[in-house]
Design a binder for these strands. Structure first.
Lengths: 109, 109
DNA sequence: CAGTATCCTTAAAGATACTG
DNA sequence: CAGTATCTTTAAGGATACTG
């Protein structure tokens, strides 16, 4: 259960976590899903005008692979695909709040 | 005081924060300074064997510019430079703890 | 000791075109 | 509608040599 932390291992663990969020578009996708919002692929395209189809699909695949996002495919024609956060993905919201609070505590230069 | 948050602005704010930590070596440098530790440039070189001098200097400059790290130059020969966290930099530690807790709450795939 | 300066490599992202 | 595939661009990082 317990783990011996060195600077290197602790840094590596945090880095793993940050890498889940590190894509150019991942945070903005996540914020469009926080609060239980459900979005279709085309909704996200509309909400994030500057993203290319390649990047949208890629970032969604990575978020899905990392367990943050759940993808639902409805077998209809034309295709319908919905994205929502997993429960664990939702639980990221207060963590990011903590990050924002820290940011806002930054003293003036 | 108050701020109107949209998905885009909130994402941008979090991204700003993540960018302060995003360099390849920044986290490991930070973890070598948490807890009030003071390190000389050569200490960090020794503690982080794989880092090049260029990267060590560059990442330290960025951390300093972002207000996380304080640099003290002693006007002696040979030169002596010490790095320590600012108070605000120290206050990042519990925030990263929150991140690690979230990571550890990840359900098995 | 504590750095710069310069050149090179590589991964991420962007642009564009195509498809079941 | 919801994607792939392919090619090009760019910025971060790495290697190496030099210096006050």
């Amino acid at each position: 259960m317990s783990k011996t932390y060195t600077a290197a291992t602790a840094a590596a663990d945090v880095e793993t976590t940050l890498n889940w969020l590190a894509g150019r578009w991942k945070l903005i996708i996540l914020f469009h899903l926080f609060g239980g919002q459900v979005q279709r692929y085309s909704d996200l395209e509309r909400l994030i005008p500057d993203i290319s189809q390649k990047m949208l699909a890629q970032q969604l695949r990575q978020l899905e692979a990392d367990g943050l996002v759940h993808r639902t495919v409805y077998p209809v024609v034309p295709p319908k695909v919905e994205y929502r956060l997993t429960e664990w993905g939702q639980s990221l919201c207060p963590v990011l709040d903590g990050l924002l609070k820290w940011q806002n505590a930054k003293p003036p230069v």
